[in-house]
Amino acid sequence: MSNTPETDDHAATATADDTVLRTEGITKRFGGLTAVNEVDVEVHEGEIVGLIGPNGAGKSTLFNCITGTLTADEGRVTLQGEDVTDWPEYKIARAGLGRMFQETRIFGGMSVRKNLLLAAQEGGADIGGLLRRPDDSLMERTNELLEYVDLGGLADTRAGRLSFGQQKLIEFAMELMAEPDLLLMDEPAGGINPTMLENLIDYIRTANDEEEATIFLIEHNMDFVMEIADRIYVLAHGERIATGTPDEIQNNQHVIDAYLGRE
């Protein structure tokens, strides 16, 4: 919550390396409960980073503090070298942060195509862009992306009519459209069937390999996260208890204890 004098120095060092996201000492309390306690994380360009932990560990709260949905009580969030701690949510998103929700949120009353058009960053918030109709190149991109996620035929269908899994793919396609510097995904593997999970892993991989998408994801499905993540952070009771490669995490005694409920 503070704009300390060294902010600028810090920003300078952050842009010098390839850190996309950095949190320092993020703390969030709800009444007497400390949901997140002095958590530091770092995500570098082109990485897929996992965030795991038992239920109630504070994972979603940490995400909400990063996106600006909640304001952290203490600590700082830096995105692409800029201190965004006190920024409103929409401004942080504009600065390059994308987010997919656990329960999958798309705009059910609008056509699938409009959902994608909305996600495109072209046009932005200036009046000219707002009052122009989408041009051919943008239409072309939506068609390509819908073909890519195998939902090409549904472009003009009301998004609310799609199944949960299809909506999840649309939400993902919207992020491909938006091309954020960093994409936060909250349990992407939750609630979808194994075939679709395979596809989703493919899509995420491809986005990471070819578009160098940087992804920070919460996940409960251990096979999935161990397979896809370059690095993993583990939270328990609001505190960061471990960090490392998937192999290191799998063999970390603290992590195993936390999951088994031992202190």
Partner: peptide, 13 residues
Amino acid sequence: RGGMAATDDEEVT
């Protein structure tokens, strides 16, 4: 338009 032909076989909302 291929809603059911897609890879997902869950119930349509």
